[in-house]
Amino acid sequence: MKRLLLIFFIGVLSCKNDASKVVNDFSTTASKEAVVLDPQSKIDLKVYDYDGLEPLINKTDNKVHVVNFWATWCAPCIKELPYFEEVNQKYKDKNVEVLLVSLDFPRQYDSKLKPFIEKNDIQSEVVALDDTDMNRWVALVNENWTGAIPATIIYNNKKRQFYERSFTQKELETELEQFIN
């Protein structure tokens, strides 16, 4: 029994190591670059209030849409962002579209968000949501959302699923597969 416990413990430890490696995939040191950032950033960031965003997260085309709410300061968001990027690449020809909705503070669009997008060469579409009346729009995004990020919506024109949680690559793909015929 003791040995079994030990094996289990080692197993847990090694899992953790794997996880910590993944954390390093995307760097959050964008702020360092921010100082020397060219103010004429090539990134054309579209900023919406909720009413502007609403049609973008309720499309009625034939695609499967993956919408992720994140921010550069949100560590678990940054950890899972590469999985969304991977999904965006891998399922492109399966009619899947990823939209990353940043909740970064407007004063950090130029100093943090745009440098982060550039540095990590984000391929999925990124938009920013700037709407202070959170009590209104959080419930409109999904009535079960308490407001914690990361949060994700996967939908097509038949069904829609909301997730207030973090994903591993495998978990994200498993969820997505349910929407792909």
């Binding site: 949100c74 959170m134 959080v138 914690a148 990020i149 990361p150």
Partner: peptide, 9 residues
């Protein structure tokens, strides 16, 4: 009421 916040770690 609801608001965006950082998930508890």
């Amino acid at each position: 009421t609801r608001a965006i916040g950082c998930s508890i770690k």
